[in-house]
Design a protein around this nucleic acid. Sequence first.
DNA 1: AACAAAAATGTAAGGATTACAAGTTAATTA
DNA 2: TAATTAACTTGTAATCCTTACATTTTTGTT
Lengths: 141, 141
Amino acid sequence: MDTGTASNFLKMHDIKPSHHRIRVFQYLVERRNHPTVDVMFRDLVVEIPTLSKTTLYNTLNLFVEKGIVSLITIDENESRYDADTSLHGHLQCSNCGEVYDIGLRFSSIDFADLDKFQVEESHIYFRGICPRCLNEGDSHK
Amino acid sequence: MDTGTASNFLKMHDIKPSHHRIRVFQYLVERRNHPTVDVMFRDLVVEIPTLSKTTLYNTLNLFVEKGIVSLITIDENESRYDADTSLHGHLQCSNCGEVYDIGLRFSSIDFADLDKFQVEESHIYFRGICPRCLNEGDSHK
DNA sequence: AACAAAAATGTAAGGATTACAAGTTAATTA
DNA sequence: TAATTAACTTGTAATCCTTACATTTTTGTT
Ligand SMILES: [Mn+2]
Ligand SMILES: [Mn+2]
Ligand SMILES: [Zn+2]
Ligand SMILES: [Zn+2]
């Protein structure tokens, strides 16, 4: 995603497009890696040497607040972020820790009693072993 | 759940039934309130004055490890625990913070690509406004 | 260039969880 | 029952993620 497009997207969502904010958003859109703050910081500080972690936290909190990034709490002790806000599931591999997208076939998810609530967000998380780790396990036999 | 039943249940799952462990498990089974560690501690220390928070953490981690309690990471900064390990959803009210059970009507949730993974756990989380908070909001109009 | 508003920075503080060593309890053996 | 051993529990300190806050820098406008 080029800088102009990102800038316009931020403006459309009531976010002033500073240089840092644009780069943080581009990172999430391009990598689609569900990064922790720490991973993001290590990657971004290479090209933005003046970046501070507080700014990264502020920026991500702002994005979540404005609804253009979704917060993933699949990990017990670290937040992760996703620029894809459409409804889809996530699986974290309990072996390597990687977080994968799980597309959902739009059949039917029906929940009892949910109509009594005013639903704002939906999250679907799985834990398990990813294909790569399953194959590695086989090759050791 | 009486002490004998709880004790046998723990033994069946390879957990030595100490007094503290029995009480912690009974608490979760009886209250079904998806408590944080802090809430649990405040409630339990009344009847078990010698209880320490470290023991509570150790006990809960053991229960989760042995599969008799499930860890709920719906909250960004605090873990919650549930003795009901059957597949069901949870909704946290963004107004009062309460966590509700959401019964699952049809177990027909189809996900693409999920068959390539070895799934160990499934979690379904919602965020929204609970009926009680919705009513309170109405009454203020 | 001067100015005002907003964003970014660095450090310190907060809060949940874990590590660890010492103390206590429970189970086993003699 | 007393001694022995293993396991559980405790309290404190450390760790790690996140936020608060005051200061500095950047941005956009006159
Ligand atoms: Mn995703
Ligand atoms: Mn539940
Ligand atoms: Zn893996
Ligand atoms: Zn509520």
